[in-house]
């Protein structure tokens, strides 16, 4: 088993204005596993996720301190090309947000942006990633149609294909099934279990059962703090902290 640490979050504090949102976060995320960040809504899960690919940059009055090492490089300190960093991570958000263009162009977007414009190359890649997101069968004959013509479940898989197409190492997913019907949710979850052999997956959710189904590793957050983290098995069967026990027994949600 591969037990490399892919992401190492070290003493991260984040505040917006006077609001202290993340407090002394220390988390290790192992490579090629599904790490689930679990916790009730409003505990800072999504914000932590956004720190990882520095989407936090676009907020005003935001203050981030500490270190986040990805492949042993501190991404909070690096002043290098931020687009390179972001390309290493695919993002899947709560609702699918297809880009306002065709299905084909959605997948090809990231490649085109980084200068890969050869038609044949693009065709191959688009097909490959649509297949990887299990969307090829449904869309191969309508690639030129606008992405908004797909169903929501299909759109979310398209967003996955689009994210995979930039060849990331990490997939960040922010409650990716919250807008989907149960069947589409199941499809996405199965996809994740399949994909973890290639990618490091960080998934944010507040659904306890979803975490139980797919997590290898759990980070439990509450009110901006990490309460407990570790392998899923010991987390669910043998929680150490009082708050974890309370959460698992359904005391707050």
């Amino acid at each position: 088993m591969n037990n490399h640490t892919k992401i190492n979050i070290n003493n991260v504090n984040l505040s917006i204005g006077k609001q202290h949102i993340l407090k002394n976060i220390n988390v290790e995320i192992p490579e090629k596993k599904i790490t689930v960040i679990l916790g009730p809504s409003g505990c800072g899960k999504t914000t932590l996720l956004k720190c990882l690919n520095r989407l936090t940059d676009s907020y005003e009055d935001i203050n981030v301190s500490g270190n986040i090492f990805i492949n042993n490089k501190d991404i909070l300190k690096s002043n290098g090309d931020i687009t390179e960093l972001r390309k290493k991570m695919g993002l899947l958000s709560q609702r699918p947000y297809p880009l306002p263009m065709s299905i084909y162009d959605n997948v090809a977007y990231g490649l085109k942006i980084s200068g890969r414009k050869k038609k044949r190359f693009l065709n191959k890649r688009v097909e490959h990633y649509l297949k990887q997101a299990s969307l090829w069968e449904e869309t191969y004959d309508r690639l030129k149609e606008p992405a908004s013509s797909l169903s929501i479940g299909q759109q979310q898989r398209l967003c996955l294909a689009r994210g995979l197409a930039v060849d990331p190492e990490i997939i960040l997913a922010d409650e990716p099934t919250s807008a989907l019907d149960p069947l589409s949710s199941q499809a996405i979850e199965e996809k994740f279990i399949h994909l973890k052999q290639y990618y490091t997956i960080v998934l944010v959710t507040h659904i306890l059962r979803q975490a139980k189904r797919i997590a290898d590793n759990i980070v439990f957050m509450y009110l901006g703090e990490v309460i407990e983290q570790g392998p899923a098995e010991s987390f669910f069967n043998n929680p150490k902290m009082e708050k974890t026990k309370a959460y698992l027994s359904g005391a707050f949600n």
Binding site: K50, L55, R86, S93, Q94, Y97, C159
Partner: peptide, 10 residues
């Protein structure tokens, strides 16, 4: 989120 989606694709 649409902006964020595009940004995170590099």
């Amino acid at each position: 989120q649409l902006t964020e989606a595009s940004l995170s694709l590099g």
